[in-house]
Design a protein around this nucleic acid. Structure first.
Lengths: 226, 226
DNA sequence: CCTAAAAATGAGTGATTACTCACTTTAAAG
DNA sequence: CTTTAAAGTGAGTAATCACTCATTTTTAGG
């Protein structure tokens, strides 16, 4: 293990994020290949167990090339984390969700669309998401940024939404956090079942039907019966 | 990285589990200390990033002592995994759950007790559980055993229980798997929130109250309204 | 107390790692 | 075409690792 660099503070990390952001459009072909290889190997083996040597081999470049493009091994990880977090916290993506939440759509349709939208994004970015959740537990400087951008922003949105529905009497008068967590739990449990614990079985699930029933169950649980 | 040993088959792994089982009562003081140090460091840093050198230091023994008691580094991991899996799949523990499920207790009380029982076990063994879920994703030979013993056994029980309640008309006629997953999701989501993503906030949660509401919500969702 | 066996120790070993850097190849500019 | 700069390469380096084993210390039995 040669992880001799000083641990980054969260501020320094955010600085690097911004740098990564700026450069995202100008990635060279080899950079992209290195990053793709790294996502694959980091998420399969974990950051520490995946060597720069095998990343290089997987990417089809020399090991030294990695260090032309990334200062350290950890910088590869950071360059992977930044885009996916920004994807989740991005004004563009949240705009759609805000629009949904602000619409007059019936609650069940709204929730279905939300679950479907989130599930699609999760599925499409599963390697990255898995990697982030994995590694945030081991890299303290990642933790804060991940919690805030991957979980905190959406949580605030959802809680505000739930609060307004409680106020309008549509949802039962429970603590908004608890209701929010129940809503999110259905997705978390589904993802955990489908992608982590029983992936073979998960492949055969009919997402649309499962979401239909999940929405039915959770809405019957939280809806005010008048 | 010196993980040069051949990958274990699941059968070989189960053989080792049985060996570990046999010896569990005769652990020496130093063995216990090594295992405790390993749980701490493996769960904090991951298996590969925690060195035998620092495990020895944490345990207050010489590095060579570790290899007197455990053939390889991976054997430490296995010796940690075995007891917790057996705790979850054990006839003793499942007996209580079976008793609960077979009782005439109203569904809400039953579910409350189940959630509370499970949460207590999870809380008490959080380091080990976290470690197991972490590492099963990286060690293919662990995976099968973990899925079967940590998740499969309880899943079968729950699904049978849900099926019988669907048959008796108490629970709505949804696929038993989907209902089971919804029930489990409430716990998974709670644990994820409380221990992984927002641990500071999680410390202040009133478990009993949260469970009370969760049970209310989920039962209103799945119960047949006659 | 003595002897033999068991347990513990920690320096050393061979393997692996992240990273460097001298050299080679490719691309860009004039 | 020539020259310079940029990109890529891979052998080598210093550090770290899991594990070994000769030696020392501790324990158990008579």
């Amino acid at each position: 293990m040669h992880d001799m660099q000083k641990e980054l503070s969260t501020d320094e990390l955010m600085g690097r994020f911004l740098n990564q952001l700026k450069d995202e459009d100008q990635l060279t072909e080899k950079q992209k290949r290195i990053m793709e290889a790294a996502v694959k190997l980091f998420s399969e083996k974990g950051f520490h167990a995946a060597s720069t040597s095998e990343i290089a081999k997987e990417a089809g470049v020399a090991e030294g090339t990695i260090f032309r493009h990334f200062k350290t091994k950890k910088d590869i990880l950071i360059s992977l984390v930044a885009p996916i977090m920004l994807r989740f916290a991005s004004p563009l993506l949240l705009k759609d969700v805000r629009k949904l939440m602000g619409s007059d759509l019936p609650l069940d349709d709204l929730l279905k669309q939300l679950y479907q939208n989130r599930l699609q994004i999760i599925e499409k970015n599963w390697s990255q998401i898995r990697l982030i959740i994995q590694e945030m537990q081991f890299h303290e400087e990642l933790r804060g940024a991940v919690v805030e951008n991957l979980f905190g922003v959406g949580r605030k949105l959802a809680e505000a939404f739930v609060s307004s529905k409680i106020q309008s009497g549509e949802i039962r008068n429970f603590p908004p956090l608890t209701v929010t967590r129940a809503l999110v739990s259905m997705m978390v449990g589904y993802v955990f079942f489908k992608f982590v614990i029983f992936p073979d079985e998960g492949m055969n699930l009919d997402d649309e039907q499962e979401i239909e029933i999940m929405v039915d169950i959770i809405l019957n649980g939280i809806r005010n019966k008048e």
